[in-house]
Structure formats: C-alpha cells, structure tokens
Write a protein that binds this DNA or RNA. Sequence first.
RNA 1: GCCGGAGUGGCGAAAUUGGUAUACGCACCAGACUCAAAAUCUGGCGGGAGCAAUCCCAUGUCGGUUCGAGUCCGACCUCCGGCACCA
Length: 863
Amino acid sequence: EIDDSRPKFYQLEMLPYPSGNLHMGHVRNYTAGDVVAWFKRLKGFNVLHPIGWDSFGQPAEDAAIKRGVNPRLWTEDNIVSMRGQLERLGVSYDWRRQMAAHRPEYYKFDQWFFLKMYEMGLAYKKMTQVNWCEYDQATLSNEQASGGLCWRCGNPVTKKNLEQWFLKTTAYADELLDGLDEIESGWPPAVVKRQRDWIGRSEGAYVDFEVLTPGLSPQRHGGETRNLVRVFTTRIDTIYGANAIVIAAEHPIAEKFRDEFSDAVRVKIDSIHEEKLKPTDYETEIEKDGIDTGLKAVNPFSGEELPVWIGNYVMMEYGTGAVMSVPGHDERDFEFAKKFGLPVKPVITVQNSDSGPSERDESRTLSEPLTDYGVMINSGEWTGTTTEEAKVKMAEFAREKGFGELATTYRIRDWGISRQRFWGSPIPIVYCDSCGVVPEKFENLPVELPDTAPFTGTGESPLAKVPEFYETKCPNCEGPAHRETDTMDTFVDSSWYFFRYTDPTNEILPFSEDVAAYWTPVDQYIGGDDHAVMHLIYTRFWTKVMRDIGLVKFDEPVKRLLTQGMVVGETFFDDESGKRVYYPPDTVEVTRDAKGKITEARSTDGKRLKHAIERMSKSKGNGVDPDEMVDIYGADAARLFIMFAAPIEHELVWNEAGIEGAVRFLQRVWRLVLKWKDALGRTATAAEEPAERTRQLRRKTHQTIKRVTDSLESLQFNTPVAALMELTNAISDFEVDPVEANEDERHAIREAMTGLTLMLMPFSPHVSEEIFSILVGNEHGAIANGARFPEYDASLAKADEIEIPVQVNGKLRSRIFAAPESANDQLQALALEDEKISELVAGKDVVKIIVVPARLVNIVVRG
RNA sequence: GCCGGAGUGGCGAAAUUGGUAUACGCACCAGACUCAAAAUCUGGCGGGAGCAAUCCCAUGUCGGUUCGAGUCCGACCUCCGGCACCA
C-alpha cells in the first residue's frame, strides 16, 4: 500500500480536548513529541506525526447550558483557535490526517465498534450501582472514579442505581495483565504497576457453605432447593478457623430471607445500604459494623455450624459478595470479631526455629492476627499441611466433593459506557415493544446527533427530550420504536483514534487493515500519567477487540510510552475571600525556607495570602499562557526552555527567569552565524594535518553528536540541550578571525555550525531552518534538501591525550596526561613517576595498583 | 495501613551506570565597554583552613561491601505519588 523504502516511525501524543486554549502542559507534551518526530525524520525515517481532537465531552455541554451556545459551533471554534496555537508553536503535524471525535464521519465508527462488540457478546446492558458525580451530574466508570474522586472535577463520588451499557473488559483481564510483560520494557514502571494493581488478579478458591434457615431442618437430602452461599478466599487453608460467614448487605441471601430477619437486622441492612451511597471519605477509616442474621451456614470441611452475619466491610462487587471470617489470620476479620466478641481460633502456626511449632490454646484471644504462611493446626485431617500445599489440595478436595473449586478473581470491572449526556456518540440501540433490544443496522450508521437539545444539567439524557431523535423504526420489524438516548463515554473515542489517523477518510471501515498495518503499532506515545489506568487500559482493551475482529494483527497498541510530568505554578489566594491573586507574582512577597518552599506569602499591600502548587494555567493565575509566551519570547525559546528546564518525567515548577536563558542562548547562536556567515559560504575541506585548535573543535563537535544522539534515543531532552550549549561555547571560544580563517578552520567551523543547527532543529525549528538556509544558500528547508542528522565519527571524537586521575588509597592526588589507548603498564609507570605521587608513595609498601584503561590509576599503599 | 519513587550548591539539574561529584543553565558577585543604564563580553561562585602551593570536609542520617560508593547492600529519617476494608 505504502511505497516508501524508509523505515516507518509512528510518533503520537495524547490528543487534546478542544477547550479553546492550550496550557503549558500541552506545550511540554507536544514539544517533546515534535522533538522525537524531527529527530526521526532527520535520521531518515518515514514519520507519521498526527494530531486530532477529543472533542466530545462535558465542557462543550456546560458552555451550552451556561451560555446557550451550540456545542458543535463552540467546539469547532475552539479547534480553529487551538490549531492556530499549535501552528504558532511550530509543531510539525500532518494536518491532513486530523480527526475530531464529534464529527459524524468519526463517531460513526464508535457505533460500528459498539455493534461489533454487541455481536460478539462484549456489549451488554444491566441495572447496576454506578459511580455518580453530583457536581458534574455525570456517571463515571470505575477508572474515572478511582480514589473515590471524580477524575474531572475532583469532587467525591457517590453511587446511583442506573441501567447502563457495559463493555466486557473483564473478558480480557488475563490478557491485559499478561500483555504487560510484553510492553514492560518500553513503558514507565509506574504505569505498568498501576495497571497490574488495577486489574488485580488474585488466585484463590470458591467454597460453598450451605445455609440453614432457623426453624427449618437442613434440606440436605430432600429434593428441595438448597440455599448455598459461595465464598471467595485466597486462604482456604485457614477455613477451620472460620467463626462466621459475612455477607454484603446487597447479597441475594439477605434479600431472600429478609422477611425472616428480625427488625433489628433489617434496620441494620438498610443503614449499611445508605452509608454505601454516601461519598467516601478517605481521611477517616470506616468503622466495622454488622449484625448476626440468625441464619447458620455449614462449613463443608469441618461440618461446623457458623453464624451468618451482614458486614459493612464486605463488598458485593468483588468476589462473591460473601467471605468467611477468619479472625485469627485476617486483619479485618480480627477487627470485626473483636468488636462483636466473636471467638478467635488459630489454625496456622509459623515454624519457629528454636521453639518449633508453638502450642496454642484454642480459646486464647490473640493480640493480633497471624497473616503469614505457615503450617496448619486444629484443622482435622489437614493438620500439619503447609499453607502452600493446602491452598491447592483443599480446593481440589472441595471440587471432588462438589462444594468448591480453584478460582481467580479480578479487581477490574466491566467498563460502564452509558452517559446521560448530549455531547457524545449515540449508542446505536433501538428498543422495540415487540422485538425488545435491537441493534441498529450497520448500513444505518451513523446514528446522528440532532443539532441541539434542551440542556438542563440535571443529569438526565437531553436526547430523551428530542422526539425527532428517539422516535424511530425498529430495524427488525419496522414497527414504531425508540432509540437509546444515552451517549457513549468519551473514552470510547480516544480508545482507537490513533488508528484512524492512518486512514482518515475511510467511509466503510474505521480504517483499512493494510494501511494501519504499515504504521501501527505506535512506536512512541507521549502523554500525562493521569491516564495510566483510564485511557491506557481502554485502548489496550480496544486493540485486543480489534484483533479479534480481524482489523489488526498484534496485541499491544503502544510499544514505547513516555509520561511527562505536569507543568505547575505557584498560585496565591486571598486568605479571606479565597480569590486568586493574579500572575505575575511581583504583587506578592514571599518568604521561603532553605529548600525554597514557601513559608509565608503576603501581597504588597500587606494581606496574608494562601498559596498552593497547581497545574499551571492562565485561568488559575499562576503563569503565562502559551500565546503570551510565544509573543514575549518566541516559539523557539519557549520550546527549548521547556525541554531544558527539567527531565521530561519530572514535575516542572514554572520559572519565568529561566526562559530568558533560552532566549540568550538562541541569540548567541545567531550572532555566531552572523559572525561566520561570509566565511562559511566559501567551500572548504579538512586539512591532511590539521592544527590542534581545529582538531579540538572537531572533537567537541563529534562528542556532542554522540551525546545528543544517545540522549534523544533514550528520550532525554534536557541533557542534549546542555550539550548543544557546550558546543556553542566551544565555537565561541574558537578564536580565529573569520576573514583570516584558513580552509581547515573554515571547514571545522562549518562542520560545527551545521551540526549544531541540525541538532538544534528538533528543539527550535524556526531559527534552525533560518540558519540552515544561510548554510545551504536556499530556502527549501532541511528535509527537502535531504539534510540528515549529523553522524558521529569516533576517530574524530577521540582525544590525542587525555587527563587521567591518579589516586592513592582511593583519594585523588594527582593527574597525568596520556594517550587514551595507553597500555596499563605505561599508565602505571607514568603515575609512579609523577612528582606528587612519588613523594606520597615514598617509604611505603605499594600493595596493589589498579589501572582502569583511559580512566584512572589507583595506588594502594600501606605504612 | 499497604505499595511505589525520590532526597546532590541559593535554585532547575549533570555524572560515560562502581572510577576526577557539582557539567549546562538560572540567580548572585566583581571587572570591561558606557556620561549612565540596558544589552554584550571577561572572571568568580559547595563549606572550612591557609599569603600560597595545598590540605580537610561535603551527594538525607547511620552502618556495610570494595583499591574506590551519589551510584551496590542493610537500617532509619524526610518528602512526593498511587491504592483504599479486593477476603
């Protein structure tokens, strides 16, 4: 499909939401991406570097609610102005490939994927308790409600019962986990770890306990239905220590026997229910609560009858919603037992080297639970078995007897994608009175959004108030029917957008398999780590689905991932009103401690101010916005500084003074070009026997080429800038009058200047292209001129003579000069001959001499 | 509470992965140019002692391994981030 002999490189950055303004975080992200794209291009790769818009979502709808503007027009306007900002920054995007999620030609394929997943049984609808953000009036997926706070506004999340569509991410739980092994080497360890934790696989066993109802005889042998409560445990070896079964308030058993419970039990169940709907406060630990239902459950291993409790600490959503309580070997159960005076029975002992298995009184109350692995005691025929062995054998035994089995559970849940929102991709489902739930036909896609809808901001689907939208024909029987009025989570759009860039105008498929096969997977992805468990899990899931559909042939969409740190600024607030004080902070007087942390801040008129470090943005009053910065300093300096100021993965506290340094540097380079301009125009070749000063300059040039190349290959952006500054200093120090420069000198300078220009180009492309046009005498641009990143020549980088430190007993005492390839015994001899060294060594025993070639000599003496 | 990561000048940070600690930049100080200022250029800039050559001490703290530790190991302290009763 694509005829290009160059190797391909797909450089991708996380697409922005078109809010209307770039912030400094974007600048950092997109500059880093552009540096890589330029570098690879200059290295001879066929580079794909696209950008698009994550243009569905809440702010557009908020603008519609607050200001009555049409979300589509608002969004399109914002795209135009933000594209302008990116262009002013000079980010080298292929604008022909630009996508925007809100356009029907794109979201058509969100719907296409949804229908595919519906066919595959990966999309389903159910009534469930969802995460709900009261502030945003919006549903959130588990990933978006991680930490109990809304990912968008940071407010606490509550729960709400809603019917909603899910995508079965759990079907790929194992693959999502195991796939991390494949990409681990190219992803930040923190992201990999967070994904592992999020997926949360745990190996254990299911055990069925038979429930006995009070007043009724056990229905063990009769033909009547037995009531079983299934428990998940990772510690089946502790089952003889169970003192109760604890179930969640929402557990089906609790529903089923509700009428037989005492009033006190019913009241407790309802109060636990209510508590769960409240926003979680993570500051205070929730106290354990519960009540004995009066039901009994039979421990299938011991035959013992255990009470069945309701417990507020048991989650219906994880495992089976029921646990066996083993207070002797589990912290939570221990706490629960202590509070309600339940018996604690130790059944595991830790082998102690001196005392052997300790003898424990069965009824003794322990001061704390023993959660370590060990050997079983008080466990009938299993006594003496080790934990490791029992975990497998007891589950196996349970399976044979029909009351349990080995089991694996996951923390990750299916992805709830229904949103009661207007500004999203409509879910292509039709409800028909006679046919039920009917998927829309592929040929009827896209299900298009109406131009507008009544916006209330109350969390109800605006589309449910637009009859022209929801009134439709059943795709099956053609009878009257109505459409689903919820739209999809916007994370659906960003799950596959970067595949669309490869084939942006395809009207039949999301993208053609062949074109995508050339460009994907993504070679380098750059974005914020706030998406570690949202976007980055979803897109991995989506890729596996696309593989199963047959659109791609690989499992993982992103080979290498770089997460850049936030750009933050110091924000000041009026202590009383809480109002933000405007940047620049010369209206603020600040006292700092030794570490530079603010201890006190006052406004110049004496008011006390609060302060905080916050994500930098103009609206927060803690920094300039990109447009102002480009106006004041220019795009090149802004880009250079943001790359130079700190390692890319570090948080960057904005500092206005530093950027002046970048401006100065670029001006210095420019002055050097002007100084040498005329001399550089005359062709020159290197001398056969060059003078020392030109050898020195060429050495610095080639050392710099190596440093910059290596740094960029390993995605370091601050150190190559430092190296370029050093090279610039070396060119400055080259004290030759341009008018009188000989051919050899002109050649060395030309090499240094050309190298500097091309290496600077990824960081500061405008001035670099300008300089390049002076160097080549035309204005076609570096790539069009076939320019390549300079190649490192090891023989030129090598020094004739290097300085080698000499240590005595590991302490630096002197330096010698020698050729880098000097043999060890030569270096040793030189070191011993050295005046200072011979003095220090005189009269002492030389025990040993360590020589590291071209590095150092260390003389170990005694006496 | 559990799990990660990080502590290097006044500040942002380098350090070829165990081999000259503090590159590069910011800020600051001094000098040159200027009537003056800005810009630019030159020099200085971890702490201590000394006229000096030079020496001693410094990479959060304490210990260890090693000829040699910012880097490896152990314990602790501090800060930042993640998770939130996951059975």
